[in-house]
Amino acid sequence: MPEASEAEIMDHQHQGTTTARELPMARSMCWHCQSEVTGEYLCGQCVKVQPLSKDLDYFACFQLPRLLNIDEQQLEQTFYELSRTFHPDFYSTKDESEKAISLGNSAFLNAGYRTLKDPIQRAEYLIRLEAGAVKDIRSNPPADLFEEILELQETLETFRQLAPNGPSSDLEALRIKLQDEREHLEKRQAEMEASLQNKFKEWDQLQGCAPLPSQAREEKNTLLRDMQEILSNRTYVRNMVNDLLETTG
């Protein structure tokens, strides 16, 4: 369901309950005492927790630049610190509005940590964040990969049909063939990941140059497209590998 996942990513706010959604969301004004919020997450006047801004993305939430190689120690540390600020455990004795905000903020924080912790999810998320600038990102695999996987799936189906009949030389031959194919695909997956790693580095270097010359913008868009392509191909390969592993052991 691409529509939903897009909506989920692009609409960064994540209200837990109706109560949170109906609260005034002006970031600069405390929903409770209406004074100006000077602290980052808590009102300086009444110390009530504030709902995270609608415009906040995961990178900003974790105070990280939009890079693809990040300091994982720092990510974890920020996650723990923010958890201590937002977790519902610390709002158990507070009123319903505060409970709702804590729940919403925590859910966002947890989703952010999960996304940024994993290098692949991190890249996929970043691409979607930056996608506004990139047109025609293709999400179908190239024809040759597509055909290869289709063929493998047919072989796998034959294997699945034969398997319940007990061991046979045909089945064994198929198993060996499928295992070979799997090893081949695993190698390809590793190659894709290595090339992704290089692209990540390129991206991080580009992000380092500021201000952006128009040429760099062009370069970034190309890079985003490339990464998207590799990521999507990798997903196909990985799913196939998992299927093979599950069926042939």
Partner: peptide, 11 residues
């Protein structure tokens, strides 16, 4: 194994 609280939206 997703840390809770957590939410997901669907259109």
């Amino acid at each position: 194994n997703t840390t809770i609280p957590t939410s997901a939206k669907e259109m």
